[in-house]
Amino acid sequence: MKVQMLSYKRLDSPIHRLAGSTKLIFFALWSVVSMITYDTRSLLAMFLFSLIMFALSKVKFRDYSFVLYLILFFFLLNHIAIFLFSPHEGVKIYGTTHELFHIIGWYSVTLEQLFYQFNIMLKYLTVVPIALLFILTTDPSEFAASLNRIGVNYKISYAVALAMRYIPDIQRDYQNISFSAQARGIDTSRKEKLFKRLKNVVSILLPLTLSSVERIGVVSAAMELRGFGRHKRRTWYNAKSFTARDYAAFAVILIVMAVSITLTVSNGSRFYNPFV
C-alpha cells in the first residue's frame, strides 16, 4: 500500500475548482438520472462525458485503482447472479427472443438478455466514475460545508467529513502496523501464499481497530473541549461561493436530465428497445 487510496489531493483542475455544493448536487442528480433511465443512447453519452470529466480532473489512476478493481469484482458477481436467477429478464422486457445458443435447462443466451445486462453495465460505468471523482476532488471540510449548505445538520456534516479524513489515516496506520508485523516475521506481502497472507492480514485488524478507537476518543475529547455542538449553527472556513463555472455545471446536469427525460418519453418506457 504505497499510495493513499480514495483520499483528497489538492490539484489545479476545473473539477477541483468547483464548489463542494455544486459537486454534491451534480453527483446526486447524475445518479438519479442514470438509475432511472435504461436508454442506451443516454447512458453511453453520460459514460463518455464522465470519462472526459475524469481526464479534466488530472486524478491519477493509482489513486483509485484498488477500489475500482474491487467495484468491478462485485460488478461481475452481480452480472453472474442476474443471469443465474433471471436468464430471460431481457426477453420479458423487450418482448422478443433472439437465442444465440442454449446452455442447459432453462439457461440460454439471448440477444435481449445480453442487451439488458449491457445496459446495467452502463449504469455502473456511468455512476462509479462520478462517485470516485466526487470523493477524490472534494476537500472533506468543504464537503461538510456543502452538506450543511443544502440543509443537513452541521453535526452530521462534520461527522461525514471526519469519516472521509479517516480514510488516509487508517491506510497509514495499516501500513505502519503491517511493517511492524513483517519485522516480527508476519509477512503480508505477495511473497506469502494467499490463505496465509489473509490470516496474517486478519491479525493486523485488531491493533488497527484499537488505534482507530483511540483516535476517535482523542478527536471527540478535543471537539468537546472546544464546545462543538453548543450552538445551533456554525460557520465554515472552507465554504465556497458559487461562480460562473458552478452555474455552468448546473446547466450541464439540467441539460442531461432534460435529454434523458425526452428520450424516455419518446421511447414510451424507461427501456430503449432496438428489437422492434
Rank of each mutant, 00 (worst) to 15 (best):
L48T: 06
V213T: 14
F26M: 03
G20A: 05
I216R: 15
R172P: 11
E192S: 12
M53N: 00
Y272Q: 11
D246T: 11
R10D: 11
K60E: 03
P274D: 08
R62A: 03
E224K: 12
Y8C: 04
S220L: 13
N153Y: 11
R172C: 14
D187I: 04
L24N: 01
Y107S: 07
Y237M: 08
A19K: 00
R245A: 13
V128P: 00
V67T: 10
V32D: 02
S203V: 14
M35V: 06
E99F: 07
H88E: 11
F228V: 06
S31D: 03
R10I: 13
I261N: 04
F143T: 01
V91T: 05
L208F: 14
I130E: 00
I80A: 03
A221Q: 14
K196R: 15
Y107E: 07
S65C: 10
M121I: 09
S86A: 10
S212Y: 07
L18Y: 01
L6W: 09
I204M: 13
R172W: 15
F75A: 02
L254M: 08
T138Q: 02
H16D: 06
Y107C: 08
S220P: 11
S203E: 14
Q182P: 15
K191G: 14
L84P: 12
V59L: 02
F179K: 14
V265Y: 08
N200Q: 10
P207T: 10
G95D: 07
A258R: 06
V213Y: 12
L70S: 12
L205I: 14
R270T: 15
Y64L: 03
R226E: 13
S34C: 05
P140W: 03
E89I: 08
N78P: 14
I150A: 10
E214Y: 07
R41A: 05
Y8F: 14
S178Y: 10
G105F: 12
L72H: 09
F250T: 09
Q171C: 07
V265R: 12
G95M: 09
V219Y: 13
V3W: 14
L147T: 03
L198V: 11
I135F: 01
S141D: 03
I15F: 02
F61L: 08
M223P: 05
V256K: 03
G268P: 01
T22K: 02
M5L: 15
K199L: 11
I25R: 00
H16Y: 13
P207I: 11
I130D: 00
R215S: 13
I120G: 04
P140F: 05
M53C: 02
T22F: 01
P87Y: 04
L263H: 05
P129T: 01
V202Y: 10
S57D: 02
K92A: 11
H98Q: 08
V59D: 00
V213H: 13
